[in-house]
Design a protein around this nucleic acid. Sequence first.
DNA 1: CCGAACTTCTGGAACGTTCCAGTTCATGAG
DNA 2: CTCATGAACTGGAACGTTCCAGAAGTTCGG
Lengths: 325, 325
Amino acid sequence: MPAVRRPRPTLLDVAAAAGVSKSLVSLALRGDPGVSERTRERILAVADQVGYRPSLSARTLKQGRSMLVGVVISSLANPYHTEIVASVEDAAEAQGLSVVLAHGSRERHRLADRVQQLGDLGVDGLVVVSSWVPAEVLTTAARRAPVVMVGRTAEPVPGIDSVNNDDEHGAALVVRHLAAQGHERIAHVNGSRRPAGTARRRGYEDAMAAVGLESHVRTVEPDGVAELLAGPGRPTAVFARNDVEACDVLDHALDAGLAVPADLAVVGYDDTMLARRARPRLTTVQQQREVMGTRAVELLTGRLGGRADDVHEVLEPRLVVRASG
Amino acid sequence: MPAVRRPRPTLLDVAAAAGVSKSLVSLALRGDPGVSERTRERILAVADQVGYRPSLSARTLKQGRSMLVGVVISSLANPYHTEIVASVEDAAEAQGLSVVLAHGSRERHRLADRVQQLGDLGVDGLVVVSSWVPAEVLTTAARRAPVVMVGRTAEPVPGIDSVNNDDEHGAALVVRHLAAQGHERIAHVNGSRRPAGTARRRGYEDAMAAVGLESHVRTVEPDGVAELLAGPGRPTAVFARNDVEACDVLDHALDAGLAVPADLAVVGYDDTMLARRARPRLTTVQQQREVMGTRAVELLTGRLGGRADDVHEVLEPRLVVRASG
DNA sequence: CCGAACTTCTGGAACGTTCCAGTTCATGAG
DNA sequence: CTCATGAACTGGAACGTTCCAGAAGTTCGG
């Protein structure tokens, strides 16, 4: 099989083979009612037989829309992000939109490049699952197609919608849960200066104060965990800013010979598959991921329908209590 | 900021604003040497100022190529797949190609749809990171753009190149390693009927025979692990077909009160981040993932350069010994 | 001072669609 | 028999690029 790559057949080829005009082929393939049953069938058969496939570039160029939603994600390694992507995809598909994914790991400018690239491709909307994209890049992109930030909302950017969970509230849920179990020395592991991290830290601090534990507030960087668990006044509970870091805490606890949750309660955030795999199973905060995807796509179509005012959707997170604390 | 979406500026708009012809703008933006320095700078400035961005649909339509590589992946949840994608992306970028990703989880036909879709989009090459795509879909796709299967190679498909590791050999490495440590009752957990699973099973069986342990060959489905570890003649070592299932084995060992590796050695396959996170750290088989991406892109460009014969690249896997066995 | 050679720029055709304005032809009302 | 109606189909323009052939303008050897 020599795998000869000849120029792909076009509408004209199909038209010639079927003995009709290109316009009629176009109409038939798109299921236009004004084509007689007999001819439609014949055209479909011919198209199939010559292996015709439409050119999305040509269609996009002519129609000015692509029926494509671009999704930009900063890392494929973070299950939280990828799980959101899946929910966006399901929602888009339900609207007859297809999703193309781009990820720009490592450097920040690569992410920005990918946003532009998807824009150049002609997507009808853009979902950004990362707070790591400069605001001006988003604003520029939004001149051509609506943009929604999902899951990792940065400061609101004018003209850009967002869907997120209430990180402060989620953190408060954790603190109240731990406090209710009698924990007082509740530490927080959080090395992030980005919006979600900041909000969770603030939620932790405020909630600690609200339950009268402000004197026990103690926030450490991820690489300070070993030290945190070694000291004499070590905490009885640790709330980590996400599941990944919670797993690291579990790991350190194991090294330090601490039983979880007997000696140390550990709680994460995001309810990713890491939480469901960890031993003991991780107590964590669940965001409504499927709702996120659905709402994101709704916001896009809303913009395409002409809505001009910004919408910032905030979903209520839910505490999932498992074995770790 | 009302986020008004006006029609994007085109070459003609830039040309008008700069007082030159559209052709010259095109040349200037693409860095053609036949444009005088002065004019180029002026054009670039104007383009920037009106916010011009090229239309990839128009360019692809005219040029017949998109400088895009499509990557199709069956699941974002499998770290093995996503880590391959990252390596493909790096390699493509180094060649001036951009990557668009599509994933079709769940049903098989969705995956096939995404392959077609990327083809319709006009990608110059397709990398399929999944053995779950029907051969005839690949063959059809290959008529328009070269296709390479990576990492989960199915039976060779005529006209389709592939890059994979030697699963049989990898399995043999594991068996030899365990046997050398004195293990005899080495069981195999493998519920996959797909090519990689089958090859690893065969590699396990053959290697067991080669070290004189054919009487201890015992292969179980993933849901038979609890039973496997409970019985009286339980194995002293388990080789799982991938890291995910190895982690499940670790989980069951914990439930059964077995110490790893003292009571039970556990070995995985793929060397994903799961192996690096598990406790104890998982002994596993590493495939040369970066090489995979590079070779995959090389195979694509080779085809684009006119190569007609199929290439099936087989990389040698490497055993990574960690704490679990 | 002619024209060759080069540099710099331009206009139009083409890529594969969609869409609009028609055209053709049969049907049936008057 | 005529003409309006509608069903079925067609031709050409347009979308935003690229690319080719060629048009200006400039330089320079003879």
